[in-house]
């Protein structure tokens, strides 16, 4: 018996989701009284995982090949799962984590449960709460399989420190022979992505046009936040569709979500509902977003936002 977690990294640095997964995995392996095994790729500082209770880490070196090769990654993780005789495998809810989950589940003959938001309420049979209907509801899902792959919704568990004596192995499992080849990667390394962000600043049609997006960008910059937008904003081409959040766009599960000039339509709220704290800035006190938010300012974005940005900047200095 063992629990395996996929430790995600970016340019060798472990992502926050990697530590969150380790924390979550530790709680499960404590409950099951078994080891917590991490699998990572090209991680520079594997020892940092000893703060989160990882007993063993397979740190697989892909030698200069920095692309996410799904066939190689999933086969390597599956090899570890088999070698360690693991019955719970945990991936994150990042784009790569959700890519791996279903594929891994077939490779290790496991059930796949995505959008997991809590620790299992029961282990035999495995029963766990997940979100569904795009955050409009939750369901308690029970598995009939011995092996299970879970994808943990980001920020749903948080970080919990626990020290361990980590052993690091740098095994390489055979490189893949997939017909799928990554030819190019286009990634803004200086920008926080919506999936990784603790804070997301989002703009809606109330901002009147793309030329006013400096309001959103300046605020996001002082807060170290990712930028997002409502669907019509991306449909009109004011912003790239990769910023579209909501039921039919990206889900947001940040600690803080700030919505500016967004009315709060049901499809928008569904996608951002699982953010912990929501702030709305809107000049219409009747905007539905006020019913969903924790904090609100009824006011003109063009006046309020620059002031907020300025004050936050001053506070940082």
């Amino acid at each position: 018996m063992a629990v395996v977690v996929f430790i995600e990294s970016q340019e060798g640095e472990i992502k926050k989701a990697g530590f969150e997964l380790a924390s979550y995995g530790r709680s499960i392996s404590d409950a099951m009284k078994c080891d917590l095994i991490g699998v990572g790729f090209n991680i520079i500082d594997p020892k940092s995982l000893s703060n989160y209770g990882v007993d063993k880490l397979y740190n697989i070196e892909t030698r200069g090949d920095s692309f996410f090769d799904i066939e190689r990654y999933s086969s390597s993780i599956a090899s570890v799962v088999k070698k360690e005789n693991a019955n719970i495998v945990i991936v994150s809810s990042s784009a790569d984590g959700r890519y791996l989950g279903p594929i891994l589940s077939v490779k290790v003959d496991a059930a796949y449960i995505s959008n997991v938001v809590e620790l299992p309420s029961q282990y035999e049979p495995l029963t766990v709460k997940r979100s569904c209907f795009t955050n409009k509801a939750f369901n308690e899902t029970q598995s009939s399989k011995k092996n299970n792959v879970l994808s943990l919704s980001s920020n749903s568990f948080g970080l919990k420190e626990k020290s361990s004596n980590i052993k690091v192995f740098s095994e390489d499992f055979a490189p893949s022979s997939s017909t799928l080849k990554v030819s190019n990667l286009d990634k803004a390394s200086d920008k926080v992505s919506i999936a990784d962000a603790d804070i997301v600043v989002s703009g809606g049609r109330g901002l009147k046009g793309p030329e006013n997006w400096y309001l959103i960008e300046d605020l996001a910059e002082v807060m170290g936040a990712a930028t997002a937008c409502s669907k019509p904003v991306s449909d009109m081409g004011w912003r790239s569709h990769s910023e579209h959040v909501g039921q039919t766009g990206k889900p947001v599960a940040s600690n803080l979500y700030i919505a500016i000039g967004v009315s709060g339509a049901i499809q928008h709220l569904a996608g951002i509902n699982s953010s912990k704290v929501k702030v709305v800035i809107n000049n219409d006190p009747e905007a539905p977003f006020f019913k969903a938010a924790d904090y609100g300012i009824v006011g003109d974005a063009f006046e309020v936002v620059p002031k907020l940005t300025k004050k936050l900047k001053a506070r940082k200095l």
Binding site: F68, A95, K181, V182, S183, N184, K187, D196, S242
Partner: peptide, 11 residues
């Protein structure tokens, strides 16, 4: 689409 960017592939 990946987090914070996009990846091109051939298949």
């Amino acid at each position: 689409e990946i987090d914070g960017g996009k990846e091109s592939l051939t298949a």
